[in-house]
Design a protein around this nucleic acid. Structure first.
Length: 274
DNA sequence: AGCAGGACCTGATGGC
DNA sequence: TGCCATCAGGTCCTGC
C-alpha cells in the first residue's frame, strides 16, 4: 500500500530520471485508470510534451510538464509507477505506458485497478476533489498541537479514524497510523478528543519520526510496492506492530493484538498503549 | 455535519 | 486436490 513514504520514495526516484524526457507516444491498456481527460485526448495531446519535475502532495504524485500541466497519479492499493531504459516484457497489469523519444519508458502497473491518473493544467488541479481537500502535510510545521486542537473540538471519532482521514492530515495510511500510535503509546480506539496535550504532542512527533524513518528505508514492501526503479522498500523489517499480531512487542514482550478499527485491520500492544 | 458501511478490484489464503 | 468464500485496503458515495 503506497502511503506517504512510498510515494515520496517514488517521487525522488522519478525526479532523477524524468526531467528532460520528451513523450513520443502513449499506450493505454486499461481506460479505467485515466480519469481525465478522455483516453483519446490523453493519447493525442501528451506526445511532444517534456517532463520538467516531480512533486508529491499526500499520496498524490505530481509530475510536471513543460506546458504548465500536471500528470497526477494516485497509486491507491497496488499501483506502481516505474521507469525503464527500454521495453520490458508485457504484463496484463500494465495499464499505461509512456514512451519517450530516447526509447526509455514510464510504466503504470496496478493489479487491483484502483489507481487513478489525471492530466490537466496546473490551474485546474483543484478540480481533483481528493487532492483539493487534503489536510496539511504531516512533516510540515502546519501539523501541530493547535491545528490538532482546532480539528478535534466537535468530533467524536476515534484517533485511528482521524489519522486515516486525509482531510485531517495528508498521506497517512493503515501501516503508519498503527506504527505511530504504538510509538506514542496511544490505543487506536481512543476518542480523538480524549487525548491530553502531552499525548497530542507525542503523537505528532511520533507520526513525523515514523514517516522520516520509513522514508530513510525507502518505504515498506509487502507484496506490491516498488520504487521508481522497481526496487522493494526495507521498512517492513523495522515495523513494530503492523502485521506482527501474535508476535511479542519489541518494547515489552507482550503479544501484539489485532482487531478492526475504522474498518481496518489494526495492530497494537495492549501493554504499551493505553 | 459527521460518521459508518458498502462499492470498487483481484490475488492470496483458508476451510471443507 | 480443487473449489468457493473471505480478506486486504484508499477513497468515493450513500444513507442515517
Amino acid at each position: 500500500m503506497p502511503e506517504l513514504p512510498e510515494v515520496e520514495t517514488i517521487k525522488r526516484g522519478l525526479e532523477l530520471v524524468l526531467p528532460g524526457k520528451t513523450i513520443e507516444g502513449v499506450d493505454i491498456n486499461y481506460a479505467g485508470s485515466i480519469k481525465a481527460p478522455s483516453c483519446e485526448e490523453f493519447a493525442r495531446q501528451l506526445p511532444g510534451l517534456t517532463f520538467t519535475g516531480a512533486g508529491r502532495r499526500g499520496k498524490y504524485l505530481l509530475l510536471c510538464l513543460d506546458d504548465n500541466s500536471l500528470l497526477v497519479v494516485h497509486l491507491r492499493m497496488t499501483g506502481r509507477l516505474f521507469f525503464c531504459e527500454s521495453e520490458i516484457e508485457t504484463d496484463k497489469h500494465i495499464h499505461l505506458k509512456i514512451i519517450f523519444k530516447d526509447g526509455s519508458r514510464l510504466y503504470f502497473h496496478d493489479v487491483r485497478k484502483f489507481g487513478t491518473i489525471w492530466w490537466l493544467p496546473v490551474s485546474r488541479a483543484c478540480e481533483i476533489r481528493g487532492l483539493a481537500a487534503l489536510g496539511p502535510e504531516p512533516l510540515s510545521a502546519d501539523f501541530d498541537v493547535s491545528y490538532f486542537n482546532s480539528k478535534t473540538d466537535r468530533r467524536s471519532t476515534n484517533i485511528k479514524a482521524l489519522l486515516l482521514d486525509q482531510t485531517f492530515v495528508a498521506g497517512l495510511g493503515n501501516i503508519y497510523v498503527d506504527e505511530a500510535l504504538h510509538k506514542s503509546g496511544i490505543l487506536p480506539t481512543r476518542p480523538a478528543k480524549s487525548l491530553t496535550t502531552p499525548e497530542r504532542k507525542k503523537l505528532i512527533t511520533s507520526v513525523q519520526e515514523v514517516l522520516l524513518d520509513a522514508i530513510s528505508w525507502r518505504g515498506t514492501t509487502f507484496n506490491d510496492y516498488r520504487d521508481a526503479a522497481g526496487m522493494s522498500g526495507q521498512f517492513q523489517n523495522r515495523l513494530s506492530v503492523y502485521q506482527r499480531h501474535h508476535k511479542p512487542c519489541l518494547s515489552c514482550g507482550t503479544f501484539i493484538c489485532r482487531t478492526v478499527v475504522a474498518g481496518r485491520g489494526t495492530h497494537f500492544c495492549p501493554s504499551c498503549q493505553s
